[in-house]
Amino acid sequence: MSEEITADQLRQELKDVEEQIAELRRVGGDAEARRGQDTDTSEGYVEPEEIATELTGIAENEAVIDILEQRRERLEEQLKALG
Rank of each mutant, 00 (worst) to 15 (best):
E3I: 06
E4Y: 00
D8I: 01
Q9V: 02
L10E: 04
Q12V: 00
L14A: 10
L14W: 05
K15N: 13
V17G: 09
Q20E: 10
I21P: 05
R26Q: 14
V27Y: 10
A31F: 03
E32V: 11
E32Y: 09
E32I: 09
A33L: 07
A33T: 10
A33C: 04
R34G: 12
R34K: 14
R35F: 03
G36R: 14
D38G: 07
D38T: 12
D38A: 12
T41D: 13
S42E: 08
S42I: 05
S42L: 04
G44Q: 10
G44D: 09
V46P: 12
E47K: 14
E47W: 07
P48T: 05
E49W: 08
E50K: 13
E50Q: 14
I51D: 09
A52V: 01
T53D: 12
T53M: 07
E54G: 10
L55E: 15
T56G: 09
G57R: 08
I58P: 13
I58V: 09
A59I: 05
N61Y: 04
N61E: 09
E62Q: 14
E62M: 05
A63W: 04
V64I: 11
L68G: 06
L68V: 08
R71Y: 02
R71E: 12
E76G: 01
E76V: 10
Q78N: 08
L79G: 04
